[in-house]
């Protein structure tokens, strides 16, 4: 009797969560896998077609463009966000009086919606009426096209056309990355502050006794002891950047992803193919390619970068 009871209780307690997870998580994931091998368009499934969706994916220039844009976006957004937030957090940690107030202000963009923020920034970036170009022209500089600029930032710096892989991300994409750094900075600052607070004072005192200067203290005490936090922030920021969607839908184009597809990212492309054009089979193949990509990056970060993380024993 007791044995049955011991099973019934956990079963009853778990069932609401498990049923929902089976239906709305596990099933769609498994189903996505099956769909990615089918030819599925407006009229439903036309049967299994083997690896055709994946083969087409490898040859699809628009997929590769969105893939390359996504990588470029992450390469700009992640390090920039990390460096700026760590810098601000380190300064805030110097025993400032109004720490709470500063933290609140920096955190404000984190809780506001990406939609509202995108609308405001789209206007700031407007080539004719935006504030950024107003500042540039008052400073005597030439205005930029911001979100409407398809040319790569390296091209803009060099001043002439370059081959595709050397162009660098378009100014349009960099503008979006810049906005997302602004938006996510507060979150990273809060995490870094918590990490910095966790470093015991004894280490700093020991460094002082040993005659270490400020730069040496940062390099040999702060950074190594903070590395688990930095590592966590790096992984979280990377995963978030790879999934950027709302700003593309709201700020670029028309059509979104523009100009010339230079801001089309993988998730936007997936949405476009799988949902808007209802090419479900192909859309789910993009989804799995994306999943493998995220997995590969996470594993890369875990194996290569984590070696340099110093965990206190």
């Amino acid at each position: 009797m007791k044995g049955i009871k011991n099973y019934l209780w956990p079963l009853a307690l778990l069932s609401p969560a498990l049923v929902l997870l089976l239906v709305f998580r596990f099933f769609p994931i498994a189903y996505a896998f099956l769909l990615s091998f089918q030819d599925w368009g407006i009229g439903g499934s036309k049967g299994f077609i083997g690896l055709s969706n994946y083969k087409w994916l490898l040859q699809d220039p628009f997929f590769w463009q969105s893939f390359w844009n996504t990588i470029n976006y992450a390469i700009i957004a992640v390090p920039l966000s990390l460096i700026v937030s760590l810098f601000i957090a380190a300064l805030l940690n110097k025993g400032l009086k109004a720490l709470g107030l500063y933290r609140t202000i920096y955190f404000l963009p984190v809780i506001t919606s990406m939609v509202a923020v995108s609308i405001v920034w789209k206007w700031l970036y407007d080539p004719q009426r935006g504030v950024f170009n107003y500042f540039l022209t008052t400073l005597g500089l030439s205005p930029l096209k911001w979100l409407e600029e398809p040319r790569g930032i390296i091209e803009l710096m060099v001043g002439k056309e370059l081959p595709y892989l050397l162009k660098g991300p378009s100014l349009a994409l960099v503008s979006i990355a810049f906005m997302s750094v602004w938006k996510s900075m507060g979150y990273n600052i809060v995490i870094f502050l918590a990490g910095l607070k966790n470093i015991p004072d004894v280490y700093y005192e020991a460094a002082k006794i040993d005659g270490a200067g400020p730069w040496q203290t940062i390099k040999n005490v702060t950074l190594p002891l903070l590395s688990p936090t930095t590592f966590y922030v790096a992984i979280m920021t990377t995963i978030a950047s790879l999934q950027i969607f709302a700003p593309i839908w709201l700020m670029t184009g028309p059509p979104p992803g523009g100009p010339l597809g230079r801001t089309s990212v993988v998730i936007y492309y997936l949405y476009q193919k799988g949902y808007e054009e209802y090419q479900v089979g192909y859309g789910t193949a993009i989804a799995f390619a994306f999943f493998l990509f995220v997995l590969a990056i996470t594993i890369f970060q875990k194996t290569v970068l984590e070696k340099r993380v110093y965990y206190e024993v």
């Binding site: 778990l14 994931i29 189903y31 859309g283 989804a287 799995f288 999943f291």
Partner: peptide
Amino acid sequence: GRETIFMSLLALMMVPVPVYVIPLFIL
């Protein structure tokens, strides 16, 4: 099976939403 179920949930948590958003929409 307590630990097995729990570990499977953690694995499920790692799957980003865009991976299953289209079949979820169809469902």
